[in-house]
Design a protein around this nucleic acid. Structure first.
Length: 198
DNA sequence: GCTAGGATGCTCT
DNA sequence: GAGCATCCTAGCC
């Protein structure tokens, strides 16, 4: 197990995103450790990306996206759900990778309690669900992945294959092939619209 | 097993 | 005041 260093994230989102597949998101909680393997992500490239929160420039909400890499950008979606991103690129250049789904590995009892989900498959197969399962809230917006209770580990696992598709749930920029996932993995979210393969 | 549609409240215009 | 980087339930096959 080795924690991903800041340099890993200091690159464009479309490069970082597929390399995050197979890595492990770990959160130390008061009641124990919760962790899961990343099986689905989406890249957001900032001010040139109409689907990105940073497209129209810096606002109080998206400030973290313009900061240094290796930090966490958490926002509230549909007023209810928290969604977690990892900040990429360099300071001054906005970029982030949205974590969309995890395969639960550790702390299953913790996740089940937080989610009150009946099936393991439903614990973290969506961006709002995984934040709920791992206890990630908007109060953690701006947290450093180095030097906090939240980080991403590399245990040497490499996906056999990586699939690319359009991003899910966007009204703008949805035509871009910036969603990456591990094909065949049971914990990948289905997504709403008929999901075009590449 | 699948799909459709409503809930919900924050963010920026 | 409009627009969401979503989730859950009900209802149907």
């Amino acid at each position: 197990m080795s924690k991903l260093p800041r340099e890993f994230f200091a690159r464009p989102s479309p490069i970082v995103a597929p390399e995050l597949l197979g890595k492990i998101l770990v959160h130390h909680l008061p009641e124990g450790v919760a962790a899961g393997r990343i099986v689905e992500v989406e890249a957001y490239t900032g001010q040139t990306d109409p689907g990105s929160h940073a497209y129209r420039g810096m606002t109080p909400r998206n400030t973290v996206m313009f900061g240094p890499p290796g930090y966490v950008y958490v926002y509230t979606s549909y007023g209810v759900h928290a969604c977690m991103n990892v900040v990429t690129e360099t300071p001054g250049v906005a970029g982030a990778v949205l974590i969309r789904a995890l395969e639960p590995l550790q702390g299953l009892a913790i996740m089940e309690e937080r989610r009150s989900a009946r099936r393991q498959r439903d614990l973290a197969n969506g961006p709002g669900k995984l934040c709920r399962a791992l206890g990630i809230s908007v109060s953690m917006d701006g947290t450093d992945l180095e030097g906090s209770e939240l980080w991403i580990d590399d245990d040497g696992y490499r996906p056999e294959d990586i699939a690319v598709s359009r991003r899910i749930g966007l009204s703008q920029g949805s035509e871009l092939p910036l969603r990456f996932y591990i094909p065949g993995n049971r914990f990948v979210s289905r997504g709403r619209p008929a999901d075009q393969e590449t």
